[in-house]
Computed example of a mutant assay.
Amino acid sequence: MTDGLQTIVYPVTDLVKAKALYGALFGAEPTADTPHYVGYAVAGQDIGLDPNGHAAKGMTGPIGYWQVDDINKRIAALVEAGAEVREEPRDVGGGKLIATVIDADDNVIGLLQP
């Protein structure tokens, strides 16, 4: 089961400039602010800026992360339905797991287990 699209992560090359721009857009200060990730809570959604998204993770644009109860079970169901695992589940802090799969058209689907 999915609890909806809860998180969107944007790859950025200049975190300082991106933080200024998105801060102006949201009219808010970040809820998480580290050299590796800046996050905002906006209108019930988490919006992240990832300075390693392009180079280290191969992100070509924003990725929406669908919140799921059991990330491994959901990945198995998606693979059975034709998806391919792009990034295996990994802990991004506090026990929160993220992973990505791609569909037959190379669209990236993000999964997040709180």
Rank of each mutant, 00 (worst) to 15 (best):
Asp3Tyr: 14
Gly4Arg: 06
Leu5Asn: 11
Gln6Thr: 15
Ile8Arg: 05
Tyr10Gln: 01
Tyr10Cys: 00
Pro11Met: 04
Pro11Gln: 04
Thr13Glu: 11
Asp14Pro: 00
Asp14Gln: 05
Leu15Trp: 03
Lys17Thr: 14
Lys17Val: 14
Ala18Gly: 11
Lys19Tyr: 05
Ala20Arg: 09
Leu21Val: 15
Leu21Glu: 15
Leu21Trp: 14
Leu21Gly: 09
Gly23Trp: 08
Leu25Pro: 01
Leu25Thr: 05
Ala28Pro: 02
Glu29Ser: 15
Glu29Ala: 15
Glu29Gln: 15
Pro30Ala: 13
Pro30Tyr: 11
Pro30Asn: 12
Ala32Leu: 12
Thr34Asn: 07
Thr34Lys: 07
His36Pro: 00
Val38Met: 09
Val38Arg: 03
Gly39Asn: 09
Tyr40Glu: 08
Ala41Trp: 14
Ala43Arg: 06
Gly44Ala: 13
Gln45Glu: 13
Asp46Met: 15
Asp46Trp: 15
Asp46Cys: 14
Ile47Arg: 09
Leu49Cys: 08
Leu49Pro: 12
Asp50Tyr: 00
Pro51Lys: 07
Gly53His: 02
Gly53Thr: 00
Gly53Ser: 03
His54Thr: 01
Ala55Met: 05
Lys57Gln: 10
Lys57Glu: 01
Gly58Met: 04
Gly58Val: 04
Gly58Ser: 11
Met59Asn: 03
Thr60Val: 13
Gly64His: 12
Gly64Leu: 11
Gly64Tyr: 12
Trp66Ser: 09
Gln67Thr: 10
Gln67Gly: 05
Gln67Asp: 07
Val68Met: 10
Asp69His: 11
Asp70Pro: 02
Ile71Lys: 03
Ala76Leu: 01
Glu80Asn: 08
Glu80Ser: 06
Ala81Leu: 06
Ala83Pro: 02
Ala83Arg: 03
Glu84Ile: 04
Glu84Met: 03
Val85Asn: 01
Val85Met: 02
Arg86Lys: 10
Arg86Met: 09
Arg86Tyr: 05
Glu87Asp: 10
Glu87Trp: 06
Glu88Cys: 11
Pro89Lys: 00
Arg90His: 04
Asp91Trp: 10
Val92Thr: 04
Gly93Asp: 01
Leu97His: 08
Ile98Phe: 04
Ile98Gly: 03
Ala99Cys: 08
Val101Thr: 08
Val101Gly: 00
Val101His: 07
Asp103Tyr: 13
Ala104Phe: 04
Asn107Tyr: 14
Asn107Lys: 06
Gly110Ala: 02
Pro114Thr: 14
